[in-house]
Design a protein around this nucleic acid. Structure first.
Lengths: 212, 212, 212, 212
DNA sequence: AATGAATGAGCGTTCATTCAT
DNA sequence: TATGAATGAACGCTCATTCAT
């Protein structure tokens, strides 16, 4: 469960003003990415959104790549932290935990940030090596949690079987982003999707006939 | 099942020269999109890849939008035509048809074109209105086929239930693009994914407990 | 009173279809110039306005210059022909003729065509040699008519005095284009301008104290 | 007598380098406009004339419109300031003031800048809304000065009569630009034009028979 | 820490022109 | 006659980046 860190850390860590600058820049960058898409993402727009001049933005993030990396890392980190917190607070009954987590994941797809950010990451990961690494690491940690719960639900599954079914489940859920996400045509079906997902995935886990 | 057509057709009707130019431009555009991603997609690159000058490309496609629309429409059309042909030749046993179609869809994710194109479309659809329309229409036709087969497998499902389960299945399968697609880390799991998908989706259809 | 002619005549003189093509092109060109100004005047726009393809337009007018020359010549010619017809039908009393002609000239400034065309010609004449020639020839013929009438009104003026006062009068009237022309703020003052012009110019002619 | 100001100011406030850059760009722009005409006016040419790169020019003037507006505003401003200074130093005798001012205005038409700039403005004002505004405001201030003097010469004229005769006089004088301006065929007649203008306009004012 | 200034490259687009059909 | 096809140049503009202040 390796944590990915940005090679050259943004400056201004000590001073609280600089610190807040960095985070306000990241926030601005996230907004631009969400509103305009990566193909319209520019440092000038981020600077304007952050209320600073281009030159100053580039004092904190010398290159565009630096900023994008930091931003993606941040988004992913926050996303996973929330997810891990959720798992920690999900109670003791494994099947109940599973239900809660599925529900949370699927409901989260409705948020604008998730709806827009993830397709950008998927698209970028096909063209930018370092994004691929972030993404794979993210889904690794993500699946790790599913794997834990799956093992609790059906301890007779082998490690490989668990990994396989976790992969199947996580992949299947990601796919709903483009159908029930923010402003997507099937958003109102979210609860029904949760229902069908819980049923069929639990059946797959419990029934145990997973390829080995 | 409306077929979407491009409003302002590209030139090149009378002479065969123009006809082939148009298709070679589209091919070049697809390649650039696949190799570089939409954020690096430029008319100059497409023209170079097509072996013509920029000015000539813009004789056939007066605006970038025109070209992108035509290209997306083409890719989607070919994709759906293949899919519809497959369904037509899939034999008589509904469950067998379902198996074959799932297998085809999931195997298709391995191709570079599918792996790269679809995330670009998903991403673009969040920022460009007309891409949203293309995409929604495409998935509409795509699900229509699934709905037919689902009805054959379990005729006791209501229309709404059929639509719901078709949505769930198609969405779930799309999600695998980013895990088992071309050069993705779990490509070797493709067959196992087909197996798990077939099992769990068939169970969901047959067991009949779909939200209504 | 030299008549300016286009060096290379447009083709299609014999065939009536070709003939009308030329004139419909000229009409289209005039409209584009009026609506868009010379800085937005292009062969493509003219072709579109004429309802033909660019290639065909350039069959009749091989270069942009050719078209512009022909168009300007045409506009000027029609303008002068109207003016000369007016003078021919203006009655016998010289002062009355003068009044009628002033009134006609000034009223003509209200028309969109005159309001827009002439400033374009003035502007172009500062940068394009051949336009200067057209323009000077036009104003020469224009003043010739004024000179005739001025001589009739006050035969005691020398030739130079007549030329001088005709120059002063014609120049003064041209200036009103930008104030009382089509959509100009003082359009409603047109009649009052006619009144003041007639009074002061007649006084200048009759009183006879013109520099010699 | 509203002073028109440019909405989005060009950069270059703090450092003197930027300040002088702005004015050298404006000068370059004026020269290009004068030498080439607006239909040949391009940012690349202006940048080259200013001895800077295109990108740098656009750092100071983000859009072409911005530059053109600023340039026109500047030219007009300087023109009016000179005119107002002249009026302030024109002595006490109203008729003498009038003579001096007419002489100045008409002589100014001989300068290349005036000869070329004004027809460009007239032409542009027919196609670009904001140029119309600049131009109208300019002539408003211009006539205001004439109106003052006219009132002094003949106090019995009503406000409307004064405005009317000022309009007539200023319009008439503008018209001479295209005949006695820089390199125009009648440049040598300048003094005679001054003479005729002074006589006839003074007569019109003093005689008092202005439409009301 | 922040802004000003400048560059060079690339973008989508428009255009006059030439030549083949 | 008329259109199709293609080119090369220029346009206004956006951008990431560098460096001075």
């Amino acid at each position: 469960m390796t944590k990915i860190s940005v090679s050259k850390k943004p400056r201004g860590g000590i001073y609280s003003k600089g610190q807040s600058r960095v985070s306000s820049i990241i926030t601005a960058a996230e907004n631009i990415l969400i509103e305009e898409g990566y193909h319209n993402f520019s440092l000038r727009k981020v600077a304007a959104a952050a209320g600073i001049k281009l030159g100053n933005l580039q004092y904190y993030f010398p290159t565009k790549d630096e900023l994008v990396k930091t931003m993606l890392n941040q988004v992913i980190e926050v996303y996973l932290e929330n997810f891990e917190m959720l798992r920690a607070s999900a109670g003791e009954n494994p099947k109940e935990q599973f239900r809660i987590i599925l529900k949370h994941i699927i409901n989260d797809l409705n948020s604008k940030k998730t709806t827009v950010f993830f397709p950008e990451i998927w698209s970028l990961s096909n063209h930018e090596e370092h994004v691929t690494q972030y993404m794979d690491a993210m889904y690794g940690r993500y699946r790790a949690i599913l794997e834990e719960i799956i093992t609790l639900i059906n301890p007779s599954l082998s490690t490989d079987q668990v990994k396989r079914v976790a992969l199947f489940i996580s992949a299947s859920m990601e796919g709903h982003t483009i159908f029930i996400g923010h402003k997507k045509p099937w958003q109102k079906e979210t609860d029904n999707i949760v229902d069908m997902a819980t049923q069929s995935f639990l059946w797959l886990i419990e029934q145990g006939n997973v390829p080995d």
